[in-house]
Amino acid sequence: MSVKEIIGKTIREEREKKGFSRESLCGGEEELTVRQLARIELGQSLPSLIKLEYIAQVLDIDLATLLAGESISIPDEYFTMKYQLFKFPTYGDEERLAKKIQMVEDIYEKYFDYLPEEELYMLELVDNTLDYRSTGKTAAAEDVFEDFFKQLFLKKYYTVNDLLLISYYALQCQDKDYDRSLLKSLEIKVLEQEISGDEYYNAEILGVLTAIAGVYLDHAEYSHIKRLSDRMHVIIAETQQHSVKPVGLVYDAKYYLYAEHDVEKAKKCYDLALLLAQNFGDPVLVSNIRMEREIDSI
C-alpha cells in the first residue's frame, strides 16, 4: 500500500472506532469538507499536516496514530520550483504563459506522488488559471472547485489557496457578467486579510487585489478601484514587493482619469509606473504600461 492509502485507511478506521460519521467529523466544513475527507480515506489524496492535526483533535487521538508509522515529507527541490512559479510574472505575455505552464507540468511530473492535497490543489488552481489566461475556455471556478468555493464564505482567515481561487474566479468575472454581491462579499473579506510572514501569501494578496480591480476596470466601474489599489500600495510598502508597484499605479491612473476626471494625476501615475518598470528592466511590463497609456490617450 502507498503512504496515501495507509494513512487514509488508518483515519477511516479511527473515525469509525470513535463513532464519527464523515459529516460529524467535518462539522461546519470550515477546516475540512466531507468530499476532502472521503478522498483522503480512499487513499486518493495525501492530507496536509494541518488537516491531520484537525482530524486528530476532533477524534481526540495522537497525530502519530493517524500517521501509522509513516512520514509526510516534501523534497526541498519542490519548494525551489514552487518559488520560481510564484515569482515569475507573465503580464499576459504568451511566451511567459507557455513557460509558466511548462513549470507546472514539470512539477506534476516530478513530485505528484509526494505532495499533500493542499499542494496539489494549489497546482491545479495555478494550472486552471494559466489555462484560462491562454484560452479563455476553462469551466467556471465556482463549479470546478465547488466545495472550496463554498468554504470561502465560511472562513474569516484565508489561505494562499483561498486567495488563488478568488483570483481565478475574479479573472473569469472580467470577461462576463458577474454576481456583484458575491464578488463584493469576497472583496470585503480579502481587504480584511492581514499581511503574513509567508511570502507566498503576501504575493497572492496582491494578486487577488489586482484581479478584482481588473473586474471593475473591464466593467467600467472605476469608482471601486481606488480602495483596492490603496491596499495594494500598503502591502507593497510593508512587504517590499516593489516590482508590483507599477501595476498599482496603473490602476490609480485609471481611477483618477475615469472616476475623478483628473488627467494630471493620471499622467503622474503613468509617469511613475513607467519609470519604475524601466528601472526593474522588465520589457513586457514596460510595453503593457505604454499600451494602457496609449489607450487612455495620456
Rank of each mutant, 00 (worst) to 15 (best):
A203T: 14
I195H: 04
S243L: 13
N161G: 03
Y256K: 04
L206G: 13
G197E: 11
V244L: 11
I225R: 02
L130W: 13
G28K: 15
E119K: 12
Y251Q: 08
K87D: 05
D218Y: 14
K99L: 05
E187H: 01
Y216G: 06
A211V: 10
T210M: 04
L42M: 15
D282H: 15
D147F: 03
H233Q: 15
V215F: 06
E238T: 01
K268S: 07
K176M: 03
G197S: 06
Q278D: 10
A211D: 11
I188S: 09
L67N: 01
S185M: 00
E29C: 13
S223Q: 04
S167R: 15
T210S: 11
H219K: 06
S48I: 14
K99P: 00
R96A: 11
D218A: 13
S48F: 11
L274R: 10
Q44P: 00
K4F: 00
A277D: 02
E13M: 08
F149L: 05
E292P: 00
S21T: 15
G19H: 11
I101M: 13
L217R: 14
K4L: 11
L66N: 04
I107V: 09
S223V: 02
E221H: 10
F280G: 02
Y216R: 06
R180Y: 04
K189Y: 04
Q172D: 01
E117K: 02
Y108D: 12
V247Y: 05
R22H: 07
G214D: 14
L163Q: 09
G19W: 08
A211C: 13
A259M: 08
E124C: 04
E94G: 08
Y54P: 01
L130I: 10
L25G: 05
K4C: 12
L85C: 09
Q36D: 09
Y108L: 09
A141R: 10
E292F: 02
L163W: 08
L186W: 07
G248T: 01
P246I: 03
I289V: 15
L63D: 01
L154G: 07
N288A: 08
T80Y: 09
P246F: 03
I101H: 10
K268H: 09
D76R: 05
Y158H: 01
T129M: 12
K254I: 13
M122A: 12
Y83R: 14
S223C: 00
L59W: 07
E105C: 01
Y169F: 15
R35M: 08
L85H: 09
R96L: 14
V144G: 03
I11P: 00
I195M: 11
T239W: 06
